[in-house]
């Protein structure tokens, strides 16, 4: 626009940022594909069954036969992690799906509905956001009981207002955007410009937030399982593995450390994917 901004542009060319985000996007997409493969075909990746006890080899440290060592019952930690992805990752995905669907419905209702509906929904999200997510999830679990599904519901419910806010804000911004106005000026009927401009432009940021949110939902699910509110011990869920491993922390660090590392990796993948999607949509 002005000479000043133009000069700042030369100081920081944008293709650099874009190229970086393209690489990150490629890497994180690849990682997502790998995780999906783990979910669908754990047997291909895991050298052992997740529940095979081996009393001869309890507490063996990471080696070439047991990449990540064995636990107190001689079960292979790596194999358990691979099979456990089904529980941990799926719980996070389901939680995010619940939050996205409920949040989008609430947000769209607020944006499109009457002023009263908007005010009501927005005040409700204010209240909702006043509760820390973990504590709200704990309240939901206290009400509906423990277990994997319950954890997914609890985390999903706690995250709803964030999506609701985003969707409402986006929907309002996009309906006021000049490009929607431009469509209106051309005589495009309302249903068509909603389909063509509003929904895709509202959906983009939701995908970004969902990608970022899946990671923290997975971490939160593991945390709740660690508290003993999720599936019960023989299950190779990562939080359960953490809780079990913590008992033996003094002499076998690997039992608790690797499930946590798995969570970190998944969270990193989901944030990197979200961020590179965001960077791409900005430019």
């Amino acid at each position: 626009m002005s000479a000043t901004t133009a000069a700042f542009d030369t100081a920081r060319p944008r293709w650099r940022a874009t190229r970086g985000s393209h690489i990150l996007l490629a890497i994180s997409t690849l990682a997502v594909a790998l995780i999906v493969a783990l979910l669908l075909f754990p047997g291909v990746f895991a050298p052992y069954a997740p529940d095979t006890n081996d009393v001869q080899h309890t507490f063996s440290p990471p080696s070439s036969t047991h990449y990540l060592g064995t636990d107190q019952l001689g079960r292979d930690v790596f194999s358990r992690l691979v099979y456990g992805a089904r529980y941990s990752v799926t719980t996070g995905l389901v939680a995010t799906a619940i939050a996205v669907v409920a949040g989008s419905l609430a947000g769209l209702t607020a944006a499109a509905g009457s002023r009263l509906a908007d005010a009501l929904i927005m005040r409700l999200t204010d209240v909702w956001m006043a509760f820390p997510e973990v504590l709200l999830a704990l309240l939901v679990i206290a009400l509906i009981g423990t277990g994997s599904t319950q954890i997914a519901v609890a985390i999903g419910v706690a995250a709803v207002p964030y999506y609701g806010r985003l969707v409402r804000g986006q929907a309002l911004a996009v309906t006021k955007a000049e490009y929607v106005e431009a469509a209106k000026i051309l005589g495009v009927p309302a249903w068509r410009y909603v389909l063509r401009h509003v929904l895709p432009n509202v959906g983009g940021p939701v995908v970004v937030l969902a990608s970022l949110g899946t990671g923290s939902a997975i971490a939160a699910a593991a945390g709740l399982s660690l508290l003993g509110l999720g599936p019960l011990p023989p299950t190779p869920e990562w939080g359960v593995m953490l809780a079990e491993g913590q008992t033996y922390l003094a002499n076998a660090w690997w039992i608790a450390v690797f499930p946590g590392l798995a969570i970190v990796v998944v969270v990193l993948v989901s944030t990197t994917l979200g961020r590179s999607l965001q960077a791409r949509s900005l430019r």
Binding site: A177, E178, A182, K184, L186, G187, R196, N201
Partner: peptide, 16 residues
């Protein structure tokens, strides 16, 4: 509407 059209200051904002 086809009879009256608009050109705005910032065309970037006017394009999806």
């Amino acid at each position: 509407r086809q009879h009256i059209q608009l050109i705005q200051q910032d065309p970037q904002a006017a394009f999806d």
